[in-house]
């Protein structure tokens, strides 16, 4: 039981993507113009990750090693198509905003990486916990990065659409920092956030070393 919990929690800090596992950068950079967009992308990825991990793990004894990558991609692609159709039907606004990045979940290296490195070697329960943990870690990262960019770039939080505009949190005379919403802002914001996490780890390591 303890090991299953640790498979789950490692995704939330020790190997949290895309910071510790530097994978899946394209959706991270592209869709995090608002917190909600980031979260939507994260949840879609989590769904695919959970089911691909589960099925890869269930089928791990039947998939020949030579063609495993192709088999994994077919499993992943099937769930991506499901997500694509469900989002188109029920979350059309989000579907339009995320656009090309929904089909591109197929080539998100996090998912293939977990299938190859974890699910193909572990039992279904552990793989499920791993998928859920990594997926939620990714969602959390995207939500945080999206919220920071949204807060500095537009002065709002949790903006979804014109009918659900979220909250204006900045003071009235706040001049939005439009750079943050543009592509260069995405790179810089992620870089600074990553450096910040490195700093925390260093301080933790120093404390650990002093003991």
């Amino acid at each position: 039981m303890v090991s299953i919990r640790s498979e789950f929690t490692k995704g939330l800090w020790t190997v949290i993507p895309p910071f510790r596992l530097v994978l899946g950068l394209c959706p991270t950079l592209a869709v995090t113009t608002t917190g909600i967009n980031g979260m939507g992308m994260g949840l879609a990825t989590t769904f695919v990750l959970i089911f691909s991990n589960l099925f890869v793990s269930l089928l791990r004894r039947f998939i020949p090693t030579q063609v495993r990558i192709a088999s994994f991609i077919v499993i992943i692609a099937s769930f991506v198509v499901i997500v694509e159709l469900v989002m188109q039907a029920y979350f059309y606004q989000l579907f339009k905003v995320l656009g090309i990045f929904i089909p591109l979940i197929v080539v998100n290296c996090i998912i293939l990486g977990r299938a190859e490195a974890f699910a193909s070697k572990n039992n279904p329960l552990r793989s499920l916990a791993d998928g859920l943990g990594i997926g939620l870690g990714f969602t959390l990262s995207l939500l945080v990065l999206g919220s920071i960019r949204e807060l500095l770039g537009a002065g709002t939080l949790l903006y979804y659409s014109a009918t659900a505009p979220g909250f204006h949190v900045m003071w009235a005379s706040f001049e939005p920092f439009a750079f943050m919403l543009k592509p260069p802002g995405a790179f810089v914001a992620l870089g600074i956030l990553l450096a910040f996490m490195n700093l925390i780890s260093q301080i933790q390591a120093q404390k650990g070393g002093g003991r």
Binding site: V188, G191, N198
Partner: peptide, 13 residues
């Protein structure tokens, strides 16, 4: 703290 990917991302920016 900026070594590796972090400085790479800022350069990309």
């Amino acid at each position: 703290a900026f070594e590796g990917t972090a400085i790479g991302l800022i350069t990309a920016g």
